[in-house]
Protein backbone atom coordinates (compact mmCIF):
# COMPACT_ATOMS: atom_id res chain seq x y z
CA UNK A 1 0.00 0.00 0.00
CA UNK A 2 2.69 2.46 -0.87
CA UNK A 3 0.21 5.00 -2.08
CA UNK A 4 2.03 8.12 -3.06
CA UNK A 5 5.25 6.27 -3.76
CA UNK A 6 3.69 4.43 -6.68
CA UNK A 7 2.61 7.60 -8.35
CA UNK A 8 5.90 9.38 -7.74
CA UNK A 9 8.57 6.76 -8.12
CA UNK A 10 9.04 4.99 -11.39
CA UNK A 11 6.83 2.00 -11.82
CA UNK A 12 9.01 -1.04 -11.39
CA UNK A 13 8.91 -3.04 -14.55
CA UNK A 14 11.61 -5.65 -15.03
CA UNK A 15 12.31 -7.01 -18.48
CA UNK A 16 12.74 -10.77 -18.96
CA UNK A 17 16.44 -11.58 -18.73
CA UNK A 18 17.20 -8.90 -16.12
CA UNK A 19 19.66 -10.06 -13.51
CA UNK A 20 18.84 -9.22 -9.91
CA UNK A 21 21.92 -9.53 -7.74
CA UNK A 22 21.30 -9.08 -4.04
CA UNK A 23 23.27 -6.45 -2.16
CA UNK A 24 23.79 -8.56 0.94
CA UNK A 25 23.77 -12.21 -0.10
CA UNK A 26 24.97 -11.74 -3.70
CA UNK A 27 22.62 -14.33 -5.16
CA UNK A 28 21.82 -13.90 -8.84
CA UNK A 29 18.19 -14.20 -9.97
CA UNK A 30 17.29 -14.05 -13.64
CA UNK A 31 13.82 -12.68 -14.37
CA UNK A 32 11.68 -14.93 -16.57
CA UNK A 33 8.33 -13.11 -16.60
CA UNK A 34 5.92 -11.24 -14.40
CA UNK A 35 3.40 -13.34 -12.51
CA UNK A 36 1.31 -10.52 -11.13
CA UNK A 37 1.34 -7.38 -9.10
CA UNK A 38 -0.48 -6.23 -6.03
CA UNK A 39 -0.75 -3.43 -3.54
CA UNK A 40 2.89 -3.32 -2.57
CA UNK A 41 4.87 -4.60 -5.53
CA UNK A 42 5.24 -7.07 -8.33
CA UNK A 43 5.91 -10.80 -8.33
CA UNK A 44 8.17 -12.27 -10.99
CA UNK A 45 8.99 -15.81 -11.99
CA UNK A 46 12.76 -16.11 -11.90
CA UNK A 47 15.52 -18.60 -12.33
CA UNK A 48 18.09 -19.28 -9.65
CA UNK A 49 20.75 -21.93 -10.29
CA UNK A 50 18.50 -23.64 -12.82
CA UNK A 51 15.52 -23.73 -10.48
CA UNK A 52 12.29 -21.75 -10.71
CA UNK A 53 11.36 -19.40 -7.90
CA UNK A 54 9.01 -16.48 -7.32
CA UNK A 55 10.53 -13.08 -6.53
CA UNK A 56 8.50 -10.27 -4.98
CA UNK A 57 10.06 -6.85 -5.36
CA UNK A 58 8.94 -3.41 -4.16
CA UNK A 59 10.25 0.07 -3.58
CA UNK A 60 8.63 -0.03 -0.15
CA UNK A 61 11.25 -1.76 1.96
CA UNK A 62 9.13 -1.76 5.09
CA UNK A 63 6.24 -3.57 3.41
CA UNK A 64 8.59 -6.24 2.11
CA UNK A 65 10.11 -6.60 5.56
CA UNK A 66 6.68 -7.02 7.17
CA UNK A 67 5.72 -9.75 4.69
CA UNK A 68 9.01 -11.51 5.26
CA UNK A 69 8.34 -11.49 8.99
CA UNK A 70 5.05 -13.26 8.35
CA UNK A 71 6.59 -15.82 6.01
CA UNK A 72 9.25 -16.59 8.60
CA UNK A 73 6.62 -17.10 11.28
CA UNK A 74 4.62 -19.39 8.99
CA UNK A 75 7.71 -21.42 8.32
CA UNK A 76 8.13 -21.97 12.03
CA UNK A 77 4.49 -23.05 12.27
CA UNK A 78 4.16 -25.27 9.26
CA UNK A 79 6.75 -27.96 9.85
CA UNK A 80 6.28 -30.05 6.73
CA UNK A 81 2.84 -28.68 5.91
CA UNK A 82 1.96 -26.16 3.26
CA UNK A 83 1.17 -22.92 5.06
CA UNK A 84 2.22 -20.42 2.43
CA UNK A 85 5.15 -20.61 0.05
CA UNK A 86 8.49 -21.27 1.71
CA UNK A 87 10.87 -18.34 1.97
CA UNK A 88 14.24 -18.70 0.24
CA UNK A 89 16.02 -15.34 0.43
CA UNK A 90 15.61 -11.69 1.42
CA UNK A 91 17.76 -8.92 -0.01
CA UNK A 92 18.05 -5.43 -1.50
CA UNK A 93 18.72 -4.43 -5.07
CA UNK A 94 19.72 -1.18 -6.68
CA UNK A 95 17.65 -0.55 -9.81
CA UNK A 96 19.86 0.78 -12.65
CA UNK A 97 17.62 3.85 -12.59
CA UNK A 98 18.79 4.52 -9.04
CA UNK A 99 15.75 3.35 -7.09
CA UNK A 100 16.45 1.22 -4.07
CA UNK A 101 14.32 -1.90 -4.01
CA UNK A 102 13.79 -4.66 -1.50
CA UNK A 103 12.82 -8.16 -2.53
CA UNK A 104 12.31 -11.64 -1.25
CA UNK A 105 12.42 -14.95 -3.02
CA UNK A 106 9.99 -17.75 -2.30
CA UNK A 107 8.99 -21.13 -3.59
CA UNK A 108 7.12 -20.93 -6.90
CA UNK A 109 3.69 -22.48 -6.55
CA UNK A 110 2.48 -23.59 -9.95
CA UNK A 111 -1.22 -24.14 -10.10
CA UNK A 112 -4.61 -23.20 -11.41
CA UNK A 113 -6.90 -20.52 -10.03
CA UNK A 114 -9.67 -21.88 -7.84
CA UNK A 115 -12.58 -20.85 -10.07
CA UNK A 116 -10.97 -22.32 -13.18
CA UNK A 117 -10.14 -25.53 -11.37
CA UNK A 118 -13.72 -26.06 -10.15
CA UNK A 119 -15.05 -25.29 -13.59
CA UNK A 120 -12.86 -27.84 -15.34
CA UNK A 121 -12.77 -30.53 -12.66
CA UNK A 122 -16.32 -30.34 -11.35
CA UNK A 123 -18.19 -28.95 -8.37
CA UNK A 124 -17.51 -32.01 -6.25
CA UNK A 125 -13.97 -30.70 -5.70
CA UNK A 126 -15.19 -27.59 -3.90
CA UNK A 127 -15.95 -29.33 -0.62
CA UNK A 128 -12.66 -31.21 -0.63
CA UNK A 129 -10.56 -28.14 -1.39
CA UNK A 130 -12.37 -26.18 1.31
CA UNK A 131 -11.63 -28.96 3.78
CA UNK A 132 -7.95 -28.70 2.91
CA UNK A 133 -8.09 -24.95 3.34
CA UNK A 134 -9.88 -25.23 6.67
CA UNK A 135 -7.24 -27.68 7.84
CA UNK A 136 -4.50 -25.18 7.00
CA UNK A 137 -6.42 -22.36 8.65
CA UNK A 138 -6.85 -24.45 11.77
CA UNK A 139 -3.06 -24.84 12.03
CA UNK A 140 -2.53 -21.15 11.40
CA UNK A 141 -5.12 -20.13 14.00
CA UNK A 142 -3.66 -22.50 16.55
CA UNK A 143 -0.32 -20.80 16.06
CA UNK A 144 -1.97 -17.48 16.93
CA UNK A 145 -2.41 -15.97 13.46
CA UNK A 146 -5.26 -15.10 11.14
CA UNK A 147 -4.82 -15.08 7.35
CA UNK A 148 -6.71 -11.80 6.90
CA UNK A 149 -6.81 -11.16 3.18
CA UNK A 150 -8.31 -14.50 2.20
CA UNK A 151 -9.66 -14.23 -1.34
CA UNK A 152 -9.90 -16.25 -4.51
CA UNK A 153 -6.94 -14.42 -6.05
CA UNK A 154 -4.72 -15.47 -3.16
CA UNK A 155 -5.47 -19.17 -3.65
CA UNK A 156 -4.07 -21.65 -6.15
CA UNK A 157 -4.78 -25.31 -6.73
CA UNK A 158 -1.53 -27.19 -7.32
CA UNK A 159 -2.07 -30.30 -9.42
CA UNK A 160 -1.51 -34.03 -8.97
CA UNK A 161 -2.72 -34.47 -6.40
CA UNK A 162 -4.95 -31.38 -6.30
CA UNK A 163 -4.02 -29.36 -3.23
CA UNK A 164 -5.15 -25.85 -2.40
CA UNK A 165 -2.34 -23.42 -1.52
CA UNK A 166 -2.31 -19.82 -0.46
CA UNK A 167 0.17 -17.58 -2.18
CA UNK A 168 0.03 -14.07 -0.69
CA UNK A 169 0.44 -13.76 3.04
CA UNK A 170 0.50 -9.95 3.18
CA UNK A 171 -2.64 -9.75 5.32
CA UNK A 172 -1.63 -12.31 7.94
CA UNK A 173 -2.22 -10.77 11.36
CA UNK A 174 -1.71 -11.86 14.95
CA UNK A 175 -4.94 -12.86 16.67
CA UNK A 176 -6.40 -9.99 18.69
CA UNK A 177 -4.97 -7.23 16.50
CA UNK A 178 -6.62 -5.33 13.68
CA UNK A 179 -6.66 -7.00 10.26
CA UNK A 180 -3.65 -5.73 8.33
CA UNK A 181 -4.96 -5.97 4.79
CA UNK A 182 -8.33 -6.96 3.40
CA UNK A 183 -10.45 -6.88 0.26
CA UNK A 184 -13.93 -5.41 0.64
CA UNK A 185 -15.91 -8.25 -0.91
CA UNK A 186 -14.41 -10.76 1.53
CA UNK A 187 -14.40 -8.45 4.54
CA UNK A 188 -17.11 -8.90 7.14
CA UNK A 189 -16.69 -5.28 8.21
CA UNK A 190 -17.74 -4.15 4.74
CA UNK A 191 -20.82 -6.37 4.92
CA UNK A 192 -21.59 -5.08 8.41
CA UNK A 193 -21.42 -8.63 9.70
CA UNK A 194 -18.68 -8.09 12.26
CA UNK A 195 -15.52 -6.31 13.30
CA UNK A 196 -12.09 -6.16 11.68
CA UNK A 197 -10.45 -7.76 14.67
CA UNK A 198 -8.24 -10.71 13.81
CA UNK A 199 -10.00 -13.81 15.08
CA UNK A 200 -10.62 -17.20 13.45
CA UNK A 201 -14.21 -16.30 12.54
CA UNK A 202 -12.86 -13.43 10.39
CA UNK A 203 -11.15 -15.94 8.09
CA UNK A 204 -14.19 -18.22 8.04
CA UNK A 205 -16.40 -15.38 6.81
CA UNK A 206 -13.90 -14.74 4.00
CA UNK A 207 -13.81 -18.45 3.20
CA UNK A 208 -17.60 -18.47 2.84
CA UNK A 209 -17.27 -15.51 0.46
CA UNK A 210 -14.64 -17.42 -1.53
CA UNK A 211 -17.20 -20.21 -2.01
CA UNK A 212 -19.81 -17.68 -3.16
CA UNK A 213 -17.39 -15.86 -5.43
CA UNK A 214 -16.73 -19.01 -7.45
CA UNK A 215 -20.33 -18.84 -8.67
CA UNK A 216 -20.40 -15.03 -8.86
CA UNK A 217 -17.09 -14.31 -10.61
CA UNK A 218 -18.08 -10.67 -11.13
CA UNK A 219 -18.88 -10.38 -7.39
CA UNK A 220 -21.79 -8.21 -6.22
CA UNK A 221 -22.33 -5.08 -4.15
CA UNK A 222 -23.76 -5.00 -0.66
CA UNK A 223 -26.65 -2.73 -1.57
CA UNK A 224 -28.76 -1.23 1.19
CA UNK A 225 -29.32 -4.49 3.04
CA UNK A 226 -25.97 -6.29 3.10
CA UNK A 227 -27.09 -9.23 5.21
CA UNK A 228 -30.17 -9.87 3.09
CA UNK A 229 -28.10 -9.61 -0.08
CA UNK A 230 -25.71 -12.33 1.15
CA UNK A 231 -28.53 -14.70 2.04
CA UNK A 232 -30.31 -14.09 -1.26
CA UNK A 233 -27.17 -14.83 -3.25
CA UNK A 234 -26.44 -17.92 -1.17
CA UNK A 235 -29.94 -19.33 -1.61
CA UNK A 236 -29.85 -18.61 -5.34
CA UNK A 237 -26.81 -20.79 -5.96
CA UNK A 238 -27.81 -24.43 -6.59
CA UNK A 239 -24.19 -25.64 -6.45
CA UNK A 240 -23.92 -24.38 -2.87
CA UNK A 241 -27.19 -25.88 -1.66
CA UNK A 242 -25.34 -28.76 -0.09
CA UNK A 243 -23.16 -26.40 1.97
CA UNK A 244 -25.92 -23.94 2.84
CA UNK A 245 -25.76 -24.50 6.60
CA UNK A 246 -21.98 -24.27 7.11
CA UNK A 247 -21.73 -21.24 4.79
CA UNK A 248 -24.51 -19.50 6.66
CA UNK A 249 -22.90 -20.28 10.00
CA UNK A 250 -19.59 -18.92 8.73
CA UNK A 251 -21.23 -15.72 7.48
CA UNK A 252 -22.89 -15.15 10.84
CA UNK A 253 -19.71 -15.86 12.77
CA UNK A 254 -21.22 -18.85 14.58
CA UNK A 255 -18.10 -20.98 14.23
CA UNK A 256 -15.32 -20.27 16.68
CA UNK A 257 -12.83 -22.57 15.00
CA UNK A 258 -12.04 -23.85 11.51
CA UNK A 259 -12.22 -27.38 12.81
CA UNK A 260 -15.95 -27.02 13.50
CA UNK A 261 -16.64 -25.90 9.96
CA UNK A 262 -14.34 -28.56 8.55
CA UNK A 263 -16.22 -31.26 10.42
CA UNK A 264 -19.57 -29.96 9.17
CA UNK A 265 -18.42 -29.91 5.56
CA UNK A 266 -16.82 -33.34 5.91
CA UNK A 267 -20.01 -34.89 7.21
CA UNK A 268 -21.97 -33.31 4.35
CA UNK A 269 -19.60 -34.75 1.78
CA UNK A 270 -19.46 -38.17 3.41
CA UNK A 271 -23.22 -38.31 3.80
CA UNK A 272 -24.41 -41.62 2.41
CA UNK A 273 -27.38 -40.91 0.20
CA UNK A 274 -30.01 -43.68 0.46
CA UNK A 275 -31.06 -43.26 -3.17
CA UNK A 276 -29.06 -44.76 -5.99
CA UNK A 277 -26.01 -42.66 -6.80
CA UNK A 278 -26.83 -40.17 -9.47
CA UNK A 279 -24.09 -39.77 -12.00
CA UNK A 280 -22.09 -36.62 -11.47
CA UNK A 281 -22.27 -33.79 -13.93
CA UNK A 282 -18.91 -34.66 -15.44
CA UNK A 283 -19.96 -38.31 -15.69
CA UNK A 284 -23.14 -37.37 -17.50
CA UNK A 285 -21.26 -35.18 -19.88
CA UNK A 286 -18.82 -37.97 -20.64
CA UNK A 287 -21.60 -40.47 -21.14
CA UNK A 288 -23.32 -38.11 -23.50
CA UNK A 289 -20.15 -37.60 -25.44
CA UNK A 290 -19.45 -41.32 -25.78
CA UNK A 291 -22.92 -42.42 -26.84
CA UNK A 292 -23.06 -41.13 -30.39
CA UNK A 293 -19.71 -42.73 -31.07
CA UNK A 294 -21.08 -46.09 -29.88
CA UNK A 295 -24.06 -45.98 -32.14
CA UNK A 296 -21.86 -45.01 -35.05
CA UNK A 297 -19.64 -48.05 -34.43
CA UNK A 298 -22.74 -50.20 -34.15
CA UNK A 299 -24.00 -49.13 -37.54
CA UNK A 300 -20.64 -49.89 -39.10
CA UNK A 301 -20.61 -53.36 -37.58
CA UNK A 302 -24.14 -54.02 -38.84
CA UNK A 303 -23.26 -52.70 -42.26
CA UNK A 304 -20.14 -54.87 -42.51
CA UNK A 305 -22.05 -57.96 -41.38
CA UNK A 306 -24.71 -57.25 -43.92
CA UNK A 307 -22.15 -56.93 -46.71
CA UNK A 308 -20.43 -60.16 -45.66
CA UNK A 309 -23.72 -62.05 -45.67
CA UNK A 310 -24.57 -60.57 -49.02
CA UNK A 311 -21.22 -61.73 -50.47
CA UNK A 312 -21.72 -65.23 -49.04
CA UNK A 313 -25.13 -65.26 -50.58
CA UNK A 314 -23.67 -64.23 -53.97
CA UNK A 315 -20.93 -66.90 -53.83
CA UNK A 316 -23.22 -69.77 -52.93
CA UNK A 317 -25.86 -69.06 -55.50
Amino acid sequence: MNMNQTSKKLELSLQPGTSIIGKWHKNNYRITRRLGYGAIGAVYLCNFNGKQAALKISTSGSSITMEVNVLKTLQKVQGNGSLGPSLLDVDDWQHPGGTRCSFYVMEYVNGKDLGGFIQSHGDEWLGILMMQLLGDLQKLHQAGWVFGDLKTENLLVASSPPRIRWIDVGGTTQIGRSIKEYTEFYDRGYWKMGTRKAEPSYDLFALAMVMLQIYYPARFDKGNHPEKMLMTKLSATPQLKKYYTPIKKALYGTYTSSEQMRRDIASLIMQHSPKAQKPTRIGQRKAAAVKPQHSFMESIVILVTAVVFYLFHMVFI
Binding site: W24, T65, M66, D91, D92, R100, R177, S178
Partner: peptide, 22 residues
Protein backbone atom coordinates in the same frame (compact mmCIF):
# COMPACT_ATOMS: atom_id res chain seq x y z
CA UNK B 1 18.72 4.38 8.68
CA UNK B 2 16.45 1.37 8.54
CA UNK B 3 17.46 0.64 4.93
CA UNK B 4 21.12 0.43 5.87
CA UNK B 5 20.52 -2.46 8.22
CA UNK B 6 20.83 -5.99 6.85
CA UNK B 7 17.42 -7.58 6.12
CA UNK B 8 17.53 -9.81 9.20
CA UNK B 9 17.78 -6.92 11.67
CA UNK B 10 15.39 -4.77 9.69
CA UNK B 11 12.72 -7.39 10.36
CA UNK B 12 13.09 -6.95 14.09
CA UNK B 13 12.85 -3.18 13.82
CA UNK B 14 9.69 -3.42 11.69
CA UNK B 15 8.16 -5.65 14.33
CA UNK B 16 8.62 -2.83 16.81
CA UNK B 17 6.99 -0.39 14.36
CA UNK B 18 4.06 -2.74 13.87
CA UNK B 19 3.63 -3.22 17.60
CA UNK B 20 3.59 0.52 18.13
CA UNK B 21 1.05 1.00 15.34
CA UNK B 22 -1.25 -1.52 16.91
Amino acid sequence: SLEDLPPEQRGEVMEVVEDLGE
